[in-house]
């Protein structure tokens, strides 16, 4: 725990920043836990997913692929593609956390999520001189982690009790819609999302390769649109 007052204040601000975020973490974690146990994983395996992987989108996608009988390589490749965005987040955060010790960097890496990244970047832009930003990140990321584990456990325990007719699985696309829509600025970004979405539906590929190929097509469409747009 932080000892220096400035560090403690940042840590607590990080915890505070988490509070509104819990509204997206809780339902997502519940759904992840429920989906994993419904896919035939044991409670222990479902929980292990949440603390070993700690990445909701990759957990959901690999759970669905696993339930659909996809080969291991396809599951791994899909999870890798989904998590490629962490490369981008990490590259951006390295400007602020590149000078920290390896242990700090490992902790920051393990706790990296879409939400932790977004809020930390906002924090940096509102208080650019803050020297203890990593404590803010730790408060935010630590709270996210605890909430995610608790929500997963609740999902594992309650998942089988909720009847399918409630359609609670729809929460997953809803949380993704909430994250996707704010990203859609500019024609290239819209085209990337549109291509990714329609390709995922229209392609009928063997071995459940749809998600990987659709995502790559979407990225290619975005890059191409940007190239053509800037050429004019």
């Amino acid at each position: 725990m932080p000892q220096v007052p400035g560090e403690r204040a940042e840590f607590i601000d990080g915890l505070r920043a988490f509070v509104p975020m819990s509204m997206s973490i809780l339902p997502f974690g519940l759904v992840c836990g429920a989906a994993a146990s419904n896919a035939g994983l044991t409670g222990g395996q479902a929980l292990a997913m949440s603390w070993v992987i700690f990445a909701g989108s990759a957990q959901i996608a690999s759970t669905q692929l696993f339930a659909g009988g996809a080969p291991l390589l396809v599951i791994l490749a899909t999870a890798t593609i989904i998590n490629l965005r962490f490369l981008m987040y990490g590259a951006s955060l390295s400007r602020h956390f590149g000078g920290l010790s390896r242990r700090w960097q490992a902790a920051i890496a393990y706790l990296l999520t879409d939400q932790a990244f977004a809020l930390t970047i906002v924090r940096r832009s509102t208080s650019p001189q803050q020297p203890h930003l990593h404590w803010f990140y730790l408060g935010l990321g630590g709270a996210t982690w605890v909430c995610w584990q608790l929500a997963t456990i609740a999902g594992i325990l309650l998942g089988s009790l909720v009847p399918p007719s409630w359609s609670l699985d729809f929460i997953v696309p809803l949380t993704f819609i909430a994250m996707l829509v704010p990203l859609l600025s500019g024609r290239a970004m819209l085209l990337a999302a549109g291509t990714g979405g329609s390709a995922a539906v229209l392609l009928a590929l063997p071995l459940q390769l749809n998600l990987i190929v659709a995502a790559l097509l979407g990225v290619a469409a975005g890059v191409a649109a940007e190239k053509l747009g800037s050429g004019r």
């Binding site: 593609i81 989904i82 490369l87 990203l183 291509t195 659709a214």
Partner: peptide, 14 residues
């Protein structure tokens, strides 16, 4: 990489 989040999320949603 900038296009990865949007493309992946749309491909999961649809």
């Amino acid at each position: 990489l900038r296009f990865v989040p949007a493309a992946v999320m749309a491909a999961i949603i649809a």
